[in-house]
């Protein structure tokens, strides 16, 4: 008796192979949907600010020298104003990849891009 495989033509095998590959690629595509990345700003051991990278906003952050102005937009996050003398932090440009870092040493502001593959445990804090 012939097994079912004997009914498969070369063309059938080709179609099955194509669909199987496409399905596996699709699964990988879904799994690789953009992960939530976030901007974390710290000063010393203190976390000053955490925000999603995909939500445009600007914020003033207080440091010992004054306010550092941070902008988050579609390009990433960058420092646009700073009270520090040499403005090195501004010249560092835009950070957008996981692990990227912006730092204003005189004003003790550290900005880094973090990845939050897991959702935060809560959306808002009631206090």
């Amino acid at each position: 008796m012939k097994t079912p495989w004997h009914f498969m033509t070369a063309g059938d095998w080709l179609v099955v192979l194509f669909l199987l590959t496409a399905a596996l690629a699709g699964i990988a595509w879904v799994a690789a949907a953009p992960e939530g990345t976030r901007v974390v700003v710290t000063s010393g051991e203190q976390t000053l600010f955490i925000a999603p990278l995909d939500q445009p906003r600007s914020v003033d952050l207080d440091g010992p020298l004054g306010q550092t102005h941070l902008v988050i937009d579609e390009q990433g996050v960058r420092i646009t104003r700073s009270p520090c003398p040499r403005k090195i932090c501004i010249s560092m440009g835009t950070a957008r990849h996981r692990g990227d870092l912006l730092a204003c040493v005189p004003n003790r502001i550290l900005v880094h891009i973090d990845s939050s593959a897991e959702e935060a445990p809560y959306d808002l804090l009631s206090r």
């Binding site: 445990p121 959306d123 804090l125 009631s126």
Partner: peptide
């Protein structure tokens, strides 16, 4: 979509 999660201080 899901319910809002609120942390209590």
């Amino acid at each position: 979509e899901r319910f809002w999660r609120i942390g209590l201080q």
